[in-house]
């Protein structure tokens, strides 16, 4: 009876509130934050809605949380950037199939004064080594996000274990990219971020990119349709339609066309 009350009364009470309730073509997209914070969806989704009439609702959280939410079936589509975790998600039967969508790259940002002396010609491993030796403050996401997973892999690649210095110069913020950038800026720390978020970030103060271009900084975004056999309530038809558009010619062109300050933030690379 209580459920019945919620189902009937609340939506009626809110009907004036909300332009339209969920209709046939509504895609719930669990996404990483960088794609939302960079403004990509604001450019992309109206085009999709105009083309198909479908609506896309984006919940932007860290990759780790997005995957967990999708595992709870609270998503029709998952768009994140942690390829290994994405493949595991599909293999465990939560996702139907994974496709590449686009890429950009990670960059290491730090104070202009660059106390660790990281050179722009260094490799990532060398840069991290310099940082480690200088005990320069470094802000880590520490939240199981795609960026965090990448950062861990990079430290591992450099055979360094900064976690033992956690709380000293290695600062695990446990929050999103934006909050971590704010902390890095205020505490004169270095941090790893995806380029799109950095370009769009409005509080750079005296921070800049200190290292970029290394091959291992490649950042691949993938899209997955949540498996309807695992989650019978997902709108799989709408999900498939959206993914087809995103990885198809119109979506890829729209991604390539999105620019901030004349810089392209994402590079489409879906398999044709």
């Amino acid at each position: 009876m209580y459920c019945e009350f919620l189902r009937r009364v609340l939506p009626i009470a809110l009907a004036s509130c909300v332009s339209a309730a969920a209709q046939a073509g509504t895609v719930l997209l669990q996404s990483t934050t960088s794609t939302q914070n960079s403004g990509l969806y604001d450019a992309l989704l109206p085009q999709y809605t105009a083309a198909t009439g479908d609506r896309v609702r984006v919940v932007a959280v860290g990759t780790g949380q997005a995957i967990r939410n999708a595992r709870n079936c609270d998503a029709d589509v998952l768009l994140v950037h942690a390829k290994a975790a994405e493949e595991a998600f599909v293999e465990s039967g939560f996702g139907r199939s994974r496709s590449d969508v686009m890429y950009n790259d990670f960059v290491l940002i730090g104070p202009v004064a660059n106390p660790a002396g990281i050179g722009s010609d260094m490799s990532v491993s060398e840069g991290l080594r310099a940082l480690y030796d200088a005990r320069a403050p470094f802000a880590s996401r520490g939240d199981d996000s795609g960026t965090h997973k990448k950062e861990i892999a990079l430290w591992l690649g450099a055979s360094l274990a900064p976690e033992q210095h956690s709380g000293d110069w290695y600062l695990e913020t446990g929050t999103g990219m934006g909050a971590t950038l704010n902390i890095a800026v205020e505490s004169n720390a270095y941090t790893l971020t995806d380029r799109a978020t950095w370009i769009q970030f409005g509080n750079k103060q005296d921070h800049e990119i200190v290292l970029e271009g290394d091959e291992s900084l490649f950042n691949q975004y993938g899209v997955i349709d949540v498996d309807p056999t695992h989650c019978p309530n997902v709108d799989h038809a709408s999900a498939t339609r959206f993914i087809k558009w995103l990885t198809g010619e119109p979506g890829q062109a729209a991604i390539a066309a999105y620019r901030v300050d004349n810089q392209q933030l994402f590079f489409p690379n879906a398999a044709p």
Binding site: C3, L6, L10, C73, C231, N233, V234
Partner: peptide, 21 residues
Amino acid sequence: LSRAGALGPLELLYTPTAMVI
């Protein structure tokens, strides 16, 4: 309210109704 939760069938997660609750 999650689809995997006890009230999942109501499909209320990520709606203004959920926020009201």
